[in-house]
Computed example of a mutant assay.
Amino acid sequence: MQFRILGPVEIQDERTGLKILPTGAKQRALLGALVVKSGHIVSVHRLIDELWGEHPPANATNALQAHVARLRRLLPMPEPGSGEQHHEWIVTRSLGYVLRLGRDTTDADRFNELASRGRAAAASDPEHAAEVLRGALALWRGPALEGSVRGDICAAEAAQLEEHRLTVLETLYDACLRAARHGEIIGELEELTTDHPMRERFYDLLMVALYRCGRQAEALSVYDRARKRLVHELGVEPGPALRRRMEAILRHDPGLVAPGAAEQVASVHPMPLPVRTGAAAPAGPDATVLGLSGEVARLQHRIERLSLEQEELMRRFDQLMARPAAGQ
């Protein structure tokens, strides 16, 4: 059996695929709280607060007992021959109730296990790390404890799990950059900067991915977008890490180059440009020259555009650096 809280609370029999879904918000909140605190006694008082908050019924203890009884009937009995015939899921104690998982697990435990493995492999084997981390994130079916967040127990756990999910996402895309898979993650990072506009690390990763794809102007515009959003929403400038990233992009810092890119560039022999000497040209020289001329013109136009944008960003940067001095 697996108790799932990375999404709506449910129980799944991994042998048969059968899913058990508690009906009613209070049943979901009760199961969610017991799963979060599995192996520990949850007091009657805390469970009443979890289900009814500041407005419990007059007979709250009896009402809670009725919900526990209903939940017990919902939980499956161990299969004959499993060695767990006498296993009782929810045990009554003098102070409250405890959910005993025994050998069963939660999807949150599995997520934490895979996330730890992925982080450990990120530096030495980023390809494998990315695969493991994507497997961890695939366990999520929606917001943690969706439909069960009525009290402090589930609310605190949901917030902690969501923060862990975002941290794993950051680790995943950092591993993708280490594996030189920058071109694959731009769209996903764009969505994340939209969904989590206050999280600077997603902007940072997106800027690196764009820069490595030869899209310096877009990478710089991401910084500008992040700054405007942070100033508008929080009244603060981007943090030092994001500012350093912007400056590195402006300087074309070699540290931004994708792993292995320098070796690839060094191994490529540059194509000789045609030289006009007045001698007879080889077959088709006009087509070659025209093609190269068009490419050079496009490159010059792009360089001019990037130079203008760089000057504008540097002007803004100088203004930002001058603000503290002006206020002294």
Rank of each mutant, 00 (worst) to 15 (best):
A159Y: 08
A180G: 11
E190R: 14
A217E: 14
P197R: 11
A156L: 11
D224A: 15
Y173S: 07
R201C: 07
E184Y: 05
V208M: 12
A209D: 02
L172A: 01
D174Y: 09
L161C: 09
A180D: 15
E200D: 09
G214Q: 07
R178D: 10
G187M: 12
L192V: 00
I186W: 07
L192H: 06
E163A: 13
G183K: 09
R178T: 02
L192D: 06
I185L: 09
A156D: 11
E200N: 04
G214A: 09
L169N: 00
M207F: 08
R178F: 00
A179D: 06
S221E: 15
L210N: 04
L210I: 04
E191Y: 05
T194Y: 12
Y203Q: 00
H196S: 10
F202V: 01
A179W: 02
I186Q: 11
R165F: 10
L172R: 06
F202I: 05
T167V: 01
R199E: 09
E190D: 14
V168P: 01
C154P: 02
C213S: 15
A209R: 01
D174I: 08
P197C: 06
A217G: 13
Y173A: 00
A179N: 10
D174A: 10
A219N: 03
E190P: 01
H164F: 10
A219L: 02
I186Y: 00
T194I: 13
L172Y: 03
L161D: 03
E218M: 12
E218C: 03
E170W: 08
R199C: 02
T167Y: 06
Y211Q: 10
L189S: 07
E188N: 11
H164S: 14
L177E: 07
P197S: 11
R165S: 07
L206N: 00
A180C: 10
F202N: 01
R165P: 00
E191V: 10
E170F: 07
A156S: 15
